[in-house]
């Protein structure tokens, strides 16, 4: 089965790394993956997104028409990708940054207060992307949570390994918000 997903937000929110951790985890589970970034010249503040496709079969195009799942971390991304979510697909939006609600009634919509939870409960706003990712894998079951943890361990430089337990907590928190 092919899952086509978009991760979108501001540069610096961790949208590209969220996508690459998921892609890495899926690759380790033996699936075919593509991770296709789109961003401007700026590192922070501009809009950034990546398309991640995961499949049991070889993937033809990294570029797709619409998405099975959209995960949005700012208002411009919600405006852009809510209409491009497939009918019956999933939209996950960060509802402390984005003040305006999604409008469609033919998709499954989940508002996640990832920024608020990361700052208040985990005392580190940077792991809000892992909260979103925890919610994502709970909803579409695309990879196992253990694979995500293994992916973090493999891809994070060793000097950041003391942050692994915090990231695990964030993933688990994200899972609990949608289950």
């Amino acid at each position: 089965m092919l899952q086509e997903m978009i991760f979108a937000g501001f540069g610096g929110q961790g949208v590209l790394s969220m996508g690459s951790i998921l892609a890495y985890a899926a690759m380790k589970e033996g699936k075919d993956v593509t991770w296709y970034p789109s961003y401007g010249p700026e590192m922070r503040g501009g809009t950034a997104n990546c398309t991640v496709n995961i499949s049991d079969q070889p993937i033809s195009s990294p570029v797709v028409n619409e998405y099975d799942l959209s995960i949005v971390l700012n208002l411009p991304s919600l405006k852009k990708f809510e209409p491009k979510t497939k009918k019956g697909g999933i939209l996950i939006w960060e509802n402390t940054i984005i003040k305006q609600k999604p409008e469609r009634d033919d998709i499954r919509i989940y508002g996640i207060p990832a920024v608020e939870k990361a700052s208040n409960e985990l005392k580190n706003v940077k792991v809000m992307n892992m909260i979103m990712l925890g919610a994502l894998v709970t909803l579409n079951q695309i990879v196992k949570i253990d694979s995500l943890m293994k992916a973090l361990e493999d891809t994070l430089p060793e000097r950041y390994h003391h942050l692994l337990p915090l990231n695990q907590k964030a993933l688990e928190l994200g899972m609990s918000l949608v289950s």
């Binding site: 690459s20 892609a23 690759m27 075919d32 993956v33 593509t34 991770w35 296709y36 970034p37 990294p62």
Partner: peptide, 9 residues
Amino acid sequence: GAIGQMMEK
């Protein structure tokens, strides 16, 4: 630029 920047297995 897309083939250069994108990741695949």
